[in-house]
Nucleic acid binder design. Structure first.
Lengths: 178, 178
DNA sequence: ATTATTTAAGTTGTGCACAATTAAATTTTA
DNA sequence: TAAAATTTAATTGTGCACAACTTAAATAAT
């Protein structure tokens, strides 16, 4: 069917207006639908990206006998040496339901010590053991390897980071408001 | 201590060179360290972003009685109506170890049917039930709400999506190579 | 045709995530 | 200061993720 057949020669002006409005409505509908698909794509790509990144870390972290969330805890402790479950949760956006068992496993494997604060017995202090500190050297090659594997140029890298942090900051504040 | 005290007036030319080289080395070291921190920040923000996004979806999905991964499965099935575990895994980057129990739960709650293909009995076909199809209407408000909540303008949105997909594609291909 | 290989899904075990609840210590308020 | 409210961790239960392995069917190689 050629488009020529669709010329509205036999239509009244009013009918033409109706058809025109219908078309316009349809176009908006399609554009809207495309937006929704983009929205879905964005959320999916973040979700998949996160898992692919941890998969990328895995072979390196396996050698150290730790998992990705455990590595994040160590990154904090290598900077601060001592912290609390609460503070750790605020930095990593994780709650005690996740951190308590995770830290127990890390204690089990000799990387950290956990003990109640004497000043405020609600708090649990988390500190590195010697073994935990020493792991820093073995882990020092990881960020370089990951930067290479990510395949981004310095500019692309910075752009990606900006996007992610912008999105993260906003969503986190929206989520916390409720 | 003022910087004026640091002038190398009493140094020989050779000593000045040595000091200069030391300084240059230190600067490179600091720059390298900053790069590593950026790398860590990128990986962390992707990880946290992913969880914050699912948290943003949760109240909407709770009303429908589904989880975020189940929602992703439904997004695929609302487009295709029928698929296999294998194909679903390829689209969502998930394996049967994750999908089989997930699909069983969805079958349990009456959203999908699972049955062995007659042509190739290794395959399991996944199809929507009427209930699963009808859920599409209830879910139609979600992408709009999420786009609003994400707080990104259309441009920022597109830029972010490009970054994420670029990163995802590259890492996924790197991970698969091994 | 028979054996070997590959493919697809399921199973098992470990470790997050997180909602909801509980328990205990501390702070606020009446 | 005694009771109420808040803060901090821990606990319980559900649902992913994924590595490693098993099982069964289909395809390829001999």
């Amino acid at each position: 069917m050629s488009t020529k057949q669709l010329k509205l020669t036999s239509f009244s002006n009013q009918d033409k207006l109706i058809v025109h409005n219908l078309l316009q409505k349809k176009v908006l509908e399609i554009e809207h639908n495309d937006q929704l698909k983009l929205e879905n794509q964005l959320c999916f790509s973040v979700y998949a990206c996160s898992r692919e990144i941890t998969k990328m870390y895995r072979p390196y972290l396996d050698k150290l006998g730790i998992t990705y969330p455990q590595y994040l805890v160590l990154l904090v402790l290598w900077e601060q040496h001592e912290t609390t479950v609460k503070a750790l949760g605020a930095e990593l956006y994780l709650d005690s339901g996740t951190l308590t068992p995770l830290l127990k496993r890390m204690e089990e494997s000799g990387l950290v010590r956990r003990e109640r604060s004497k000043e405020d017995e609600r708090r649990v202090m988390v500190r590195l053991t010697t073994k935990g500190e020493e792991l820093k050297d073995d882990a020092s090659i990881i960020p370089d390897a990951m930067a290479t594997n990510s395949g981004l140029s310095k500019e692309e890298f910075t752009k990606a980071l900006t996007s992610f942090q912008q999105l993260l900051d906003h969503i986190h504040s929206v989520n916390d408001k409720k």
